[in-house]
Design a binder for these strands. Structure first.
Lengths: 173, 173, 173, 173
DNA sequence: AATGAATGAGAGTTCATTCAT
DNA sequence: GATGAATGAACTCTCATTCAT
């Protein structure tokens, strides 16, 4: 899942790349979209495993930065094929669907960090922690999308590091 | 091109919506992707027309904000069908291709503003104006993509206003 | 649509046989099943055209026989490809769906004949005209299915003539 | 094999229902169609067991009716899954293949009854016993097919009883 | 003997594109 | 210039069949 152009990712491509047959794919995934939940789960798992014991700075903004870098590494490690998948996931547009989304580590974890940051007076609180989290996620995805659409032609980690640096600057109290 | 789901925008849909036949479409556009240059041109034209005489604040960051709001309005006015198209444009990944991209108003205009801002000492200069412009564009697109992927289920202008507000805060000297 | 084995009739087969492309098929039929209504319509039309002025015997059982022979001719003329289609039509199983089915010439016409036959005292009336019609149709289809499943290896008209002869004998008062 | 829709009966379905694995299925049956001979054998066995000592009416038409009812009961008992299988059996279309078919109890038994009926002068003899048997079988299958195609939505035994009643009336001398 | 993961041909369907009218 | 019927490659998904364990 590493070398595809930004465009429609087909089941056949996925299978060729993973060296399995179409039948096998459908043995494990009920339908193409099932890939997504598997991948989202992978990302969450990866994040959980890799932030364990890492986010212990007193400065919550440092922790947020750290969190972002861990997440971006998962994307980098898997080539931009992964980000194609991530970015083809239809996002929830109804309030109920959004509720479920929040359960994901990728969303709940930064929210926790930001809340703590507000409590400690490190992060602006004229705006809710939820809104800030949203902005954080959109910014994260914005960078990933750009990178994927440019066929992974630049260093994602470096670029994201710059973006997150200014993001943190924006919300520091 | 106004009310379609974020997903497949077919030539047939476009033609039906524009009340022309498929044949006519192909008489004017060599292929589907040709639509894009037309649309990009439209956006640039719209921006040029609408910022004329508007960006005269002494604070260049205000001008940048204004520029962003004008651009976002073009997207809003055209429904998310437009953003689908915008976001399906393959971005240049080679240096030469990037050169051409810069010529576009959508890129050259904010770059000018940011440069003036740096000259006036209003914007951070530890990082090049080009890099900041890049971040500005990625942030802009990030919001638009999110909005389109959620099928235009929230108010884009309001949301972008918030994002740009913090973006500006991030790069203010 | 003439030379296929009794087995699944594929869209591709239909198209090859009709010498049109798959795309063309889908230009005219929304989905594969749409073929069916077209074919049912054809049969009805054929029957209507061919019984006009023919069913004027005083003996309604003769008219019923005549009707059956006209219908079977439509099947014969089109080879057993047609009967494959006929027999792959899912039959209505709910009362409401059955209502609609009755509107078809293929069902309404024999019903009329049988009713007249009962009025004239030519046909048994210990059982409703509707039930008799049902038996008539099932018998008709039974013969066609058998013929199709034996790959059209015998003379359908002759065989049906025999069957209808005894059917008529069964319901004669 | 009891509760499936009229349409696709897959090997997987059969195996799940029989609580065996697909592998086991293919250990016993060379291919899916092999199921059929087993089932045909089952039907014959069932008929033989259930008509033993039953067909002793002096009126051979009564015996034919009885035979039909026994056979239809086998179908009813097994739900319409069975009839799907029955009706997907490719019928012999060459004379040699037909020879073999005749050996089956389902064919040979009614033939015997009808022959006796003709000898006793109870059944019409302007037409051969073989032809009458053929009509009997086609009529039997016709009802079963209709029932299966309507997803078993009515009482098969009752309906067949009516059909056989008139069939018998048709061939009575 | 028994399992079920793996296979891949082939099903229905979509859609960018062509071309005779 | 304008039309839309026609094309066919490519898509997602199904399922009879195989085979290592």
């Amino acid at each position: 899942m590493e070398k595809y152009e930004f465009e429609t990712l087909t089941v056949r491509m996925i299978c060729d790349s993973a060296k399995i047959s179409v039948g096998t794919f459908y043995h494990y995934f009920h339908e193409k979209n099932d890939l997504i939940s598997g991948i989202l789960g992978d990302i969450d798992e990866y994040i959980l495993e890799n932030i364990e014991g890492k986010l212990k700075s007193e400065d919550e903004l440092e922790n947020l930065k750290e969190f972002g870098m861990v997440a971006i590494k998962k994307v980098t490690n898997n080539g931009y094929g992964l980000s194609v998948v991530i970015n083809s996931i239809p996002l929830p547009s109804t309030p109920e669907d959004r509720e479920k989304e929040v359960e994901r580590v990728f969303l709940s974890e930064p929210l926790k960090i930001i809340k703590r940051g507000q409590e400690k007076g490190q992060i602006v609180d004229e705006i809710s922690a939820e809104k800030i989290t949203e902005m954080f996620i959109i910014a994260f995805r914005g960078v990933v999308v750009d990178w994927a659409r440019r066929s992974g032609s630049y260093n994602l980690e470096e670029t994201y590091e710059q973006h997150i640096k200014y993001f943190v600057r924006a919300i520091r109290k």
